[in-house]
Amino acid sequence: MSDIVPATTLLRVEGLNKTYQAGGPPWRRRRVHAVDNVSLTVARGRTLGLVGESGSGKSTLGRCILGLISPDSGQVVFDGVEVQGLSGKALSSFRRRVQPVFQDPYSSLDPRWPVGRSVRESLDSYRIGTPADRERRVLDLFDRVGLNPNLVNRLPTHLSGGQRQRVGIAAALASDPELIIADEPVSALDLSVQAQILNLFMDLQQDLGVASIFISHDLGVVEHISDEIAVLYHGVVVETGDVEQVMKRPVHPYTSRLLAAIPSSTPPRR
């Protein structure tokens, strides 16, 4: 998409592992590999599509990269700096530069906070600008994501799903991140709203040069928006590469199965 940007590495994940204790009676408990020796890279300003079905570990991987949960082993290197073990100022500057967008626009905003305050939260906690600057910035961000600025004082319940997802994106953009990790950001939306949000993501990448990891179960969506694709299956990356290459010549049988399951827009003749 953005060929002008030189492909320097922004994020490098290497040999990442995360296991969980499975629930159930004690004699049946065992450790489940949510993320199994995963390595991937994201170049500056590019979009990596991360495809996988439920239980593939894609959300766990996203949260490990965000530094919200810590991996058992492996490295996350952001802009040349190892993220594991960061603390204080360095950690907060890393957090500023990597921001999440979540799936469910109903649970990703605090129901008691006016949406403008949610967007302002990172400006407040990272102490960016004066209070007046922050107010202005919130309005700019609303404009940026296509929201009417007079919604600033509304509570999330008074907004539609698409509007809430725009608020979520504005909140992620507030701290001027270089990488956005979007976990299923359109799967809870109606088709017509989904198209608008996908357009917004593409605009942001083009205008602001933000890199992103776009996590989705929907290969059709990922194909449309990504430069590279990584396919995650039971916590293992079974295939990575350029979108066209993966879509045309999938190497792993699971990728082929996923491709075959994409509903085509033309029904087969029966």
Binding site: M1, S160, G161, G162, Q163, D190, L191, S192, V193, Q194, A195, Q196, L198, N199, M202, G220, V221, E223, H224, I225, V243, E244, I262, P263, S264, S265
Partner: peptide
């Protein structure tokens, strides 16, 4: 038209006209 599969990759997806906007 709003469905991403089938549309050229990276292209802007046509948005449903306001009169038919579900929201």
């Amino acid at each position: 038209a709003a469905s991403p599969s089938g549309a050229p990759r990276g292209s802007r997806l046509p948005v449903i006209p306001a009169a038919w906007n579900i929201e």
